[in-house]
Amino acid sequence: MKPPKPATSPEMTWPQRFLIAAVLAWFGLLILGPAVALVRRAMEPGIGRFFAKLAEPDAIESLWLTAKITAAVTVCNTIFGIGMAIVLVRQRFWGRRLMDGVLDLPFAVSPVIAGLMLIILYGPRSTIGSRLSDMGLPIVYHLPGMILAGLFVTLPLVVRSVAPILEEVGSDQEEVASTLGADWWTTFRKITLPTIRWGIAYGSALVVARSLGEFGALLVVSGNIIGRTQTATLYVHDQVESFEPHGAYVMSTVLAGLSFGMLIALEAVRNRTHRQEYGAEESQDPSVERKTIRPTRRH
């Protein structure tokens, strides 16, 4: 992931320096600048006010709701994502190509539209929605609807992180396991799962990040009822609307910090495992590339 060391080597040419400077400037302008501005604004009234704001019931309530949705969405889409990736890569069936294409729909369609689709299908005025509501399971304007919206929006993330790994590794290892007597479940548990574990981790992390930050679909589906269906992002929106920007800054800082921290932690753990499996001397051995999936040849 990280660029190799010799970024400051003496033989760097001027065009190279210029290119690096341009990349850094672009990065600073687009990501670092806004992030720093946000944190500064959130911390402006002091750290005490920061936590006091966070401890307000509405804020707590919205964070808790976001946590619940995120947990449900992450668990569901991780499990189904793994299953879908395996089916898409390993099985050949009619409609596979179509499924492969349509899978990216949630990326292509605005979340607002996703929310709208859910309202049309499950809303109080729809047949299914009213039926389910009568049975005591209201979807729209309640938690189940919000989870559904989250599931829709994050559907491709785990699949798209896991499928390329499966494709690249091939089925050799799984076949070897079966020749050694391992049944399907053992092979999955001991071979397939460890092979794709970083894909799963990365995909799930993206799901978490996306769920934490989802706004459009939730806005449509939740009804934004304070203390009941108001998630953290909707809280931010509300705070801005009601001219209390400090609450928005605080919550935004917390959400961004959570996502950022998670990605950092993921990278750290992965680097450690990576070093273990590739050996500490990896940097001296150019034939063993980092992150390569296929066994590389050595001479």
Binding site: D172, Q173, E175, V176, A177, S178, T179, L180, G181, A182, D183, K190, I191, P194, T195, R197, E277, R294, P295
Partner: peptide, 20 residues
């Protein structure tokens, strides 16, 4: 007979070692 019960050893061209 399923592969698991054939009592065979199989060696692949690309080794197929369990890398983890």
């Amino acid at each position: 007979l399923p592969t698991q019960r054939r009592g065979i050893g199989f060696v692949f061209q690309h080794f197929a070692l369990f890398r983890h």
